[in-house]
């Protein structure tokens, strides 16, 4: 028996584009963000300067990474207004647009760890070393402690997020070693280990994500036929169950700040259970008779009651 390939059913029923919509748009966004920085060094058209740690777009819009600024504060440096303005803009943006959306839509490490996760699924690599969800908070605290103790912005020494940008924009090639290490870590050591359990940059965005507006909702959860495709593709699949199963009267919105709003669950679900919405959207679709395509799988009647 061949293993089920997540997303194939959605592809068959809804066509390639609808089964890959968010994936395609996300890859284009990631490339687009990099392109804004690359046009300068490559073609002399300067749109965004700097890297993802701090940048200046059109010589007007300053942006600063929140975790970089946190480390600077831990190292007892009070930054200039430009950096503070930049971090305020970033926090404001992600308070609306999803917190860890940075991780899935802008961060250049995402394609690397996504590739590792995809290879894992295809090669059938065991789940591997299991790490606690809380690990990421402890790592972030440990990094801040290291910054405070040494009086340096410590994470930027090895931060793959900005290292990739420096490799691409400034040609500092040795940084690729860290990126390869992250890939191997995710492929061999722990499933979704880097982005989900280690990276403190993402942890800072997860903090913003606790109050952010943009969320994924399992609005069509009555249609769920337990194919588990969403669990297979989700990089943070513990976030799905509460909203999808609706136990103890849980709402349909995926509330966990770990959710990166990557939209992969929206893509791969053959029953179109998921959609992007705001966090106060409590609408739930009414039960409908099973569509013909669901024949041969457990009938919706077998679902847990909402």
């Amino acid at each position: 028996m061949t293993a089920r390939i997540p997303g194939r059913d959605a592809w068959a029923q809804h066509g390639f584009f609808r089964a890959h919509k968010y994936l395609i748009v996300r890859r284009l966004t990631q490339l687009g963000v990099l392109a804004l920085f690359l046009t300068g060094p490559l073609a002399g058209i300067w749109i965004a300067k700097g890297t993802l740690s701090a940048s200046l777009t059109f010589d007007l819009l300053p942006l600063t990474d929140p975790f970089v600024l946190l480390q600077s504060l831990a190292a007892r440096h009070w930054p200039e207004t430009t950096a503070l303005t930049g971090v305020a803009i970033v926090i404001g943006f992600y308070l609306v647009f999803g917190g860890r959306t940075f991780c899935s839509w802008a961060c250049p490490v995402n394609p690397v760890t996504d590739l590792a996760a995809w290879l894992r699924r295809r090669l059938g690599v065991e789940k591997g070393f299991s790490m606690r969800r809380e690990a990421r908070w402890l790592v972030a605290l440990a990094v801040l402690a290291a910054s405070a103790a040494t009086g340096t912005i410590a994470w930027e020494l090895i931060n793959p997020v900005t290292l990739i940008y420096r490799v691409a924009l400034f040609g500092t090639l040795a940084g690729l070693a860290v990126v390869v290490a992250v890939f191997v870590f995710d492929l061999v050591v722990a499933r979704g280990g880097w982005c989900g359990h280690v990276c403190p940059v993402g942890t800072a965005y997860a903090l913003i994500g606790k109050a952010t507006l943009l969320r994924v909702s399992a609005r069509g959860r009555v249609r769920c036929d337990d194919c588990l495709d969403c669990f297979a593709v989700c990089p943070e699949n513990h976030v799905i169950a509460p909203a999808l199963r609706g136990r103890d009267g849980a709402g349909p919105v995926i509330a966990s700040a770990d959710c990166t709003v990557c939209g992969r669950c929206v893509d791969v679900c053959p029953e179109r259970v998921f959609s992007l919405t705001h966090r106060f959207d409590t609408r739930v679709d009414a039960a409908v008779p099973p569509p013909p395509s669901a024949a041969g799988r457990p009938a919706p009647a077998a679902l847990e009651k909402v």
Partner: peptide
């Protein structure tokens, strides 16, 4: 130097 590393975010804007 000891305070520089607490402030520099390695963005490369000076290099640009």
């Amino acid at each position: 130097e000891d305070r520089f590393l607490s402030a520099c975010v390695r963005c490369g804007l000076c290099v640009r």
